[in-house]
Amino acid sequence: MTWIAPDVRRVNPPYIADERIRLDSWLDFHRATLLHKCTGLTGEQLAKRPVASSQLSLLGLVRHMAANERIWFRIRFARASIGDLYESPEHPEGGEFALADPAVAETDFGTYMEEVAQARMVVQDRSLDETFGDESVTVDLRWLYAHMIGEYARHNGHADLIRELVDGTAGL
């Protein structure tokens, strides 16, 4: 049986909320939007690169954002001693796009969901004023939320276009 990306329910962020609820809600909305753009597609469709000059695919975007969730929340913010996802000798900057394989799309979605769950746990009960960084730059958790919301928003725009090119579906 062929695996199909499941439907994902998006919850609109509240119009009035405190800062933490607003940031969590917008980040979760964008996380769900990326998965929603994949709803109903097979691994083959998810891995399709509809623009010949680009390595972008919906599956690559899911893998890329799983890697970003891990890098930013777990490795940089929480200082966890874990490796990056999707590293390979041929792709030292990460193979999330180049190595997207339709045969393991379900596993990649599971990895994404696990990284999101881990990111949520890492920030739970942590102050938005908590800082992290290195000798060249220090940022706070509030900055990290804004960065990730922007990263998702940009890639969700890519996902809109890719989805339309893969199967003609627009406006999901």
Rank of each mutant, 00 (worst) to 15 (best):
F73C: 03
D160Y: 09
L99V: 07
A5R: 09
Q55Y: 15
L58W: 04
P13M: 04
R70H: 08
A17G: 04
E135H: 07
E114S: 12
E19H: 10
Q118F: 11
E93R: 15
A67D: 02
T138C: 09
I82P: 01
D140M: 07
L35W: 08
A17M: 05
D129F: 15
F132S: 01
W3N: 10
S25C: 06
R31F: 10
A78E: 08
D28A: 14
D160M: 06
A105E: 11
E106K: 14
V62C: 07
E44R: 12
D125T: 03
T138N: 07
F77A: 01
D129S: 14
S88Q: 09
R120L: 12
A67K: 01
A78W: 01
H147G: 00
P89V: 06
V139F: 13
S54A: 10
L161H: 06
R79M: 09
A103E: 15
E151P: 01
T169V: 15
A67N: 01
P102A: 07
R79V: 06
R70W: 10
G110R: 13
A117Y: 04
P92E: 04
D125K: 07
A100T: 05
D140N: 10
R154T: 01
Y86D: 05
G40K: 12
A119F: 02
R22N: 08
E90P: 11
K48R: 14
T138Y: 11
H158S: 05
I71C: 11
R9M: 11
L165G: 04
D129N: 13
D7W: 14
L59Q: 05
I71T: 10
E130H: 08
A146P: 01
S127M: 12
T107L: 13
V137I: 11
G168S: 06
M121C: 12
N68C: 13
W26R: 09
G43H: 09
R22C: 08
L165P: 04
T111R: 14
W26N: 03
S81P: 05
L58E: 01
V122G: 03
D160F: 11
V62G: 02
I82Q: 05
I71V: 12
Q124R: 15
E90D: 15
M148D: 00
I82G: 03
S54Y: 04
R79G: 12
T107A: 13
P102L: 03
G171T: 00
E87N: 13
D167E: 07
R20A: 09
A105D: 11
